[in-house]
Design a binder for these strands. Structure first.
Length: 272
DNA sequence: AACATTGACAACCGCGTATTA
DNA sequence: GTAATACGCGGTTGTCAATGT
């Protein structure tokens, strides 16, 4: 019953992708297309990765049409507005910004935009985490605290290891030098005695359709409790002349999102 | 120069949902 | 209908580079 058994993760590679792996994945997808099932792809493409990892690499990095580099002020503004509107639904936001992935936007938000907005005193209201319970948040903050500690320890260890290997290296060099000197002596002795001698060297949808009705579920009632307020925010956004002036297309897009949002809320029979 | 901190971003993990036998 | 699995998403972590002390 059910689907085929899941892949064993044993022997699968993790960490940064190599150029060769990128090439294998790209070539396979070019030839067979994207929708052939991520689960079986790695084996068919000759990759020692899990399907999940392949999908992520493709979607976030290799897929044609992805924009790299700095975000434009228009993109910044759009992200901020969409965040205000949708919260951390990065795939939905990404679906509205051509060439950018959810991961991209998420990273950019966390490392640039949030700080920028804080500095301007415009920090957006934090949306309720979609999944996280308070317990998890607590655990997460504890993890965060130990993280710096771990980093420190890792660096310490690496330093020690480097030192050790340096010592080892130095010892080896010293040993080699000594051996070479001995060999030279020997060689010299041999040559002095007219013998022939030969030496040897040695030598790692985001589209709107993705917003199923379940995305705004009843568990999020707290989140939705501020929905009236949210609609006011949307109205403000839509009535913002400055915004309307410089980006009419995006303005239309926000209107569409407004419609979608309204429909989703209606489907969940939320009254306000 | 050495060490600590912060920034940046790719990649991983775990969960909820969709799909399938 | 049900259980098992795949898929997609958001949150988190790992790691290297840059910057500060």
């Amino acid at each position: 019953m059910g689907r085929k058994p899941c892949c064993s993760k044993e022997g699968l590679k993790k960490g940064a992708w190599t150029a060769k792996e990128d090439m294998l994945l790209t070539e396979y997808i070019k030839e067979h297309g994207e929708g052939t099932g991520w689960r079986a792809l790695p084996k068919k493409a000759g990759l020692l990765r899990c399907g999940k990892s392949c999908r992520l690499r493709w979607v976030n990095y290799l897929k044609p049409g992805l924009k790299r580099g700095t975000f434009t002020p228009e993109e910044d503004d759009l992200i901020v507005r969409l965040y205000t509107l949708l919260g951390s639904r990065w795939s939905l936001i990404a679906g509205r910004i051509p060439g950018r992935t959810d991961n991209d936007i998420k990273n950019y938000w966390n490392t640039h935009l949030l700080k920028k907005l804080k500095a301007q005193g415009n920090e957006p209201r934090r949306h309720k985490s979609i999944r996280k319970s308070k317990e998890k948040e607590k655990a997460s903050s504890q993890k965060k605290q130990t993280r710096n500690q771990k980093t420190k320890e890792r660096k310490k260890k690496r330093k020690i290891a480097e030192n050790d290997s340096n010592i080892e290296e130095r010892e080896q060099v010293a040993k080699k030098t000594e051996e070479q000197l001995q060999m030279q002596d020997f060689s010299q002795a041999v040559s002095e005695n007219n013998y022939n001698f030969t030496g040897s060297s040695c030598s790692q949808d985001g589209t709107s359709s993705g917003a199923s009705t379940s995305e705004i579920n009843l568990e999020e009632n707290n989140y939705n409790s501020g929905i009236y307020e949210k609609f006011q925010v949307i109205d403000e956004l839509l009535l913002d002349d400055q915004w309307t002036e410089y980006n009419n297309e995006s303005h239309m897009m926000l209107k569409e999102i407004y419609e979608e949002y309204f429909q989703l809320v209606s489907k969940n029979s939320l009254s306000f």
